[in-house]
Amino acid sequence: MEQHDHSSSPHDAPHTVSYVTYLLIWLALVMLTGLTVALAGVDLGRWIIITALTIASIKTMLVLEVFMHLKFEDKTFRLFVLVACVTFAIFITLTFFDYAFA
């Protein structure tokens, strides 16, 4: 099996991800996209937003962790991504203080 060696900067320890893993993650992303499309036709009321955002968040995490190699990075990088995610979550929550109570 071919392996992809990723060691872009000298301070990073070399790490490898097999193409099987990439393929499985890709399949998971396609399935989750299919699920989102299927759920769009089901009347879930207010839960539709939460469901769609949950699926989108899982897909994002898969891309970040595996394709973008976040799981191999040190704590500083993971913290930076966490800050971005938390900020985004706060933006959405505060926006829904308007929509949910309108």
Binding site: T87, L94, F97, D98, Y99, A100, F101, A102
Partner: peptide, 22 residues
């Protein structure tokens, strides 16, 4: 400062809860 944006929108018909929070 990143969490106060909707104070630009108090007259556009936001919810009372939203206006109070912002």
């Amino acid at each position: 400062g990143s969490l106060v944006w909707a104070h630009h929108m108090f007259t556009v018909g936001m919810s009372n809860t939203g206006m109070f929070v912002f």
